[in-house]
Design a protein around this nucleic acid. Sequence first.
DNA 1: CGGAATCCGTATTGATACTG
DNA 2: CAGTATCAATACGGATTCCG
Lengths: 138, 138
Amino acid sequence: MTDDALRRELLDIPPTDPAVDRLVEEIIGRVADKWTMLLIEILTERGCCRFGELSRACEGISQKMLTQTLRAMERDGLVTRTVYPVVPPKVEYRLTDLGLGLSKAFCGVWIWAEENFRRIEQARSDYAERKAAEGGAG
Amino acid sequence: MTDDALRRELLDIPPTDPAVDRLVEEIIGRVADKWTMLLIEILTERGCCRFGELSRACEGISQKMLTQTLRAMERDGLVTRTVYPVVPPKVEYRLTDLGLGLSKAFCGVWIWAEENFRRIEQARSDYAERKAAEGGAG
DNA sequence: CGGAATCCGTATTGATACTG
DNA sequence: CAGTATCAATACGGATTCCG
């Protein structure tokens, strides 16, 4: 039995349907994204953020990508977007329950990265060294 | 206390260092990728795959992206690449312990997607409807 | 002033043909 | 079979512009 099948049995997930598989992969493709993960992390920590705050917290993101990513997240039901009709304008973003669930799921990936980044750095230098040796000798 | 701080305390993760944060984010940026996740899922299920097998299993990926993604994964120590000097050529890819750990971490995201894809579809149609209403009335 | 849409140069990605 | 080379398409990021 594959790990996947075992997991399905343990968790009582209904057997896989090809159409559902495609849909799940499409969703994975959408949320498995650097900026999405980063925004979810920030929103999880702060609870509620204005656009400018996200822009500052999500270092390196352009205004365009921030807007684009937030729109996609809103569309997928991961965040709510609340506009306050005040001057100056104020828009707040907050994770929905769905987004919070994804945040919990992502949490494991963050922990993995925090625990293993040294091993990855080591792997990278090993790889570079190996390639250099091959280039010189092979 | 933020969720993040609480998580750190519960899991005994050392306090965050800005330089480490950047590194962790860089790693997240690299592994939080559609193809990387898909390849890890496939390799977890099958244990060991040839290039062509991955190419067929990872539907929609181009040869170029497959090569590129596998190289990055090899470089980061997530997979091993074994070349058999036979004709026709045979190259096998397999997850390392590090890659298996990441697979476990990703598992939560897959389960989340499998459990919630209907809610996301619903959110998408709600969003479309809402936008259509705004366009017509607003 | 805060937030979103547009234009345009650059970097990544994808489809195809070709090689060992 | 397992890649590499090449060129077209697309996505990205920055500056600018527009809106309230």
